[in-house]
Design a protein around this nucleic acid. Sequence first.
DNA 1: CTGAAAGCGCTAACAA
DNA 2: TTGTTAGCGCTTTCAG
Lengths: 339, 339
Amino acid sequence: MEHVTRATTIRDVAERAGVSTATVSRVISGTTRVKPATRAGVMAAVAALGYRPSGVARSLKLRSTRTIGLVVTDIANPYFPKIVRAVEDAAFERGHTVLLCDGADDPSREEAYLDLLIERRVDGIVIASSGLEERFREWLVRRPLPVVLVNCTARGAALPAILSDNRAGGRLAAEHVLALGHRRIGHISAPSRNAAAGERLAGIGDAIQAVPGAELAVVEGDGTVEGGEVATRRLLDRLPGPTAILCYNDLTAIGVVRAVRDRGRRVPADVSVVGYDDIPLSAWLEPALTTVAQDTSEMGRWAVERLVERIAGRGTEPAADGVVLLPVRLMVRASTAPP
Amino acid sequence: MEHVTRATTIRDVAERAGVSTATVSRVISGTTRVKPATRAGVMAAVAALGYRPSGVARSLKLRSTRTIGLVVTDIANPYFPKIVRAVEDAAFERGHTVLLCDGADDPSREEAYLDLLIERRVDGIVIASSGLEERFREWLVRRPLPVVLVNCTARGAALPAILSDNRAGGRLAAEHVLALGHRRIGHISAPSRNAAAGERLAGIGDAIQAVPGAELAVVEGDGTVEGGEVATRRLLDRLPGPTAILCYNDLTAIGVVRAVRDRGRRVPADVSVVGYDDIPLSAWLEPALTTVAQDTSEMGRWAVERLVERIAGRGTEPAADGVVLLPVRLMVRASTAPP
DNA sequence: CTGAAAGCGCTAACAA
DNA sequence: TTGTTAGCGCTTTCAG
């Protein structure tokens, strides 16, 4: 496994085929007409030498790496893989490659990646970060390359973004338990740096206010199973406790179910639980989770399409695309029931 | 969002600071001593212009992209995200960046990516593909750059690889149900192109043979929930049916549980089920899944360490590392019980 | 300690 | 239709 031999270059091919490097380049790119005989000779040389053009050199010349950066909060969080997959698929279709930047739930690492992506000269960046920090704003405003946001927004920077309709999602979840007859409702939110969390809460508020006698108790979680457990205990300590708990996400909901059962109460007989995201496997949990599904695949695809348009120089100004709001769906399963 | 202005180059900085490009390069790389005053001037110019060196140009010159390719079967499969995350973490620590190549469960796409990675001149490749095809073998044998395998092997190519001990895992699962008293055991495997599946089956065989009166019925699944359901029906159609079913992976196990219940039987009271992988959430399923856990994080980290060693030219020949076998753990939960 | 210059591997005028 | 040539933006001898 020693790889000391210099890779074959376009010059090697040119010499072997008895033509100039320009001709080899033409044959390979296929942009210009080349005499069939010449082309054949070049192809033969390419095959014989196992020549692979250097994308690095080409990128330098063309000022394009055909690579897009993808920044995610944490790929190990079950919410993200589908987005990553969708972005990857769309990029691959368009001949682009994806540089994965996992924030590892650490904002400073995300920021470091943003700068790194610039140095790497990616053609554009897709950011799918649930906790887009205030301090990135400055960076985003003077961004030196096309950026598209997935499920996050950056105030002050006019960037194309695709969001699921978080407010509608929150409302849907609340209306569902309200319709079942619940009136004392708990909500476990996420840290306030998370914009989606705010929107979902607002949607829940909309629904609650529309129903006389309905009350809402909000507790902050952190989007994890453990955080959900802790928050639930605080919710359950209040008397009278909520008969339905709406969660920021499915992971939180799993924690809620655990905590409720630890208190000797049943889901959904005593307490109904609603999640958010419809992560894989949420349908196989016990009880199968009632949750709000977003079309993450569509988000990823849309983001790449916009990005590639912009990279190509086509595409309207950001303001025109503005923010696309994707509808959400309530998945009613077994974790909710009348009080 | 128009990005027409040429990015500032090392020349711009040099001119502004009144030095040569060589000096700017020295200041930035920090390799050579530079007079403090000169250095300060350069730094000022860098800051003033917001200069970011071009990684592309640097890569061309240095013949290194500080990028590693990561080939996975399908990031949307819950088995992979942890590996990806571990690889990403390890790469980031070492100043490398990760080009994600999702095979989308399509071997031809994986192959296309392998070639693409060469063109992109990545410094090395980590392959975590459960179905490493025979036809890649030739490619792997004459691989033009360092490759490390995660949980897969390539016969004929001496490549460093880290595998979990699939045979031991299969044995552990079988011994567990055997110890519970089961004798009619079913196994739902994966397509035979999958080497891990074969090993696991072998391990199961080892355990079965050691117990007089124990019998094994094997059916091929495809590693999905649906495949698990279908396979289970075939297993249950036999009379007398198995009282315990060991699965190729957790997704299959979920399908098994469904199918068993569809037949009006209970898990684990009537049929015990064992999964494999211990994917996230498997502990929250109903019933919580008894399964075999592998240390995927360790695998990812190890792979990157080996790869970076080799990239640096250090590191022994592949044969010396050979194949590392990582121990597995049986996670006994609620899906298994005495018959 | 710093500058001049060559060159990494490719593409695209411009000529022939 | 093909070759010559000038870079793309950087690093690194080799001189000074």
